[in-house]
Design a protein around this nucleic acid. Sequence first.
DNA 1: CGGCAATTTGAAGGCGCTCAAAAGTAGTGG
DNA 2: CCACTACTTTTGAGCGCCTTCAAATTGCCG
Lengths: 216, 216
Amino acid sequence: MANQELSTASYHRHEAFAGRPPVHASPAASLPAFFPAGAEIYAQGENCRNLYRVEFGAVRVYRLLADGRRQISAFHLPGEIFGFEADDRHHFFAEAICATGVRPLPLSSGRGDLAGELVPAVLQGLVRAQEHLLVLGCHNAVERVAAFLVDMAERQGGLLHVDLPMSRTDIGDYLGLTIETVSRGFSRLKQKGIIRLPGLRKVEIVKWQVLQDMAA
Amino acid sequence: MANQELSTASYHRHEAFAGRPPVHASPAASLPAFFPAGAEIYAQGENCRNLYRVEFGAVRVYRLLADGRRQISAFHLPGEIFGFEADDRHHFFAEAICATGVRPLPLSSGRGDLAGELVPAVLQGLVRAQEHLLVLGCHNAVERVAAFLVDMAERQGGLLHVDLPMSRTDIGDYLGLTIETVSRGFSRLKQKGIIRLPGLRKVEIVKWQVLQDMAA
DNA sequence: CGGCAATTTGAAGGCGCTCAAAAGTAGTGG
DNA sequence: CCACTACTTTTGAGCGCCTTCAAATTGCCG
């Protein structure tokens, strides 16, 4: 499980960033933090110190059950804010999927340009969670994979070439499926000519409309 | 599907309320509205006029797929606020499950005691959605039913006698199961002595700890 | 009591899971 | 540059849980 994502290669690729000044300077925001692949950003039970905005890379937010089952509740891509909690404790784990830069945001600055940015971010998180609920509650395996690809494509700017920073295991734990079933989903979509797989973690969407219809 | 819930009996039980003055008088809040069982509170695509707080009864919030599949994303019980959206349109349907009173709340009153109440309510909605995601993603049929009962019991004050205003169909569409599987889940729990079923829509929890452990 | 609808129970089939093995990739060292 | 190794991903076969279809039962109200 701790795998190639921890390799020195992917780490060093962005290592220089740690010393660079913040890109989007903001009076209220702290300096960005760098996390290598697999690194923990926060853990369940920890105090909430602040929120986070992804600068580059990708983050998985998940919960664990006593018997080891894992539910990834969300992936977060650059520009997205995560780390909201109802009280002052984290109820989830957050980890960098690949080499990732994250900017801590003040938790509840009474004033500041952030105040107007936070409520929409929470609402977007709620919308995403509800969309995900629909997928888990109503969709079969292939439809879930299709919905996942459509979502990732839209969040990467609507391009037809999608980069998946996460492993099949991550996708499985996100979609409530095993890695084998996820893999079969990809294969089925490829076999039907809906997508192509130029690389292990690259997807090219050939028939966008068909894919979107499957995701319903 | 439109069933006994629409019976005149359950309607008239609370009919007198419509003419009663608001219980929790608040300068910013409108008068409460009454909805008989099965009545639509708002529909997907409608403009968001306001939020709502349940005064009595119960509400189901759901989405429909083109082929008729339904995902109930949340039930709302007295005291809870619902109707949040990311933009000015409703993306869900909301219906009264039984005879229900609902108080419309101003959408974004810049000032007023409501302002401090809204953000926690959104966050609670987010927490609930994420908890539900965990259930749909990681739990089997019996565990889902157990989790549902635990949740309902806690939201009704932690009592061991739980009233379920919703039908098995509603529960199935909430848990991503068929009504038959939901029913078998109840039967299994009853057979194991974990719950008793004094009535069709009444549950008595006998072994709280066991039930809670199943729900993980 | 009789009729209707919801719920429960039963039997058979399908989809996804488990177990297992093969194929493909990336990184390391010769 | 190529072989070797460790890992992820893919593919295959059999099984189990949930769904589907069907019938029996229960509860509710006229």
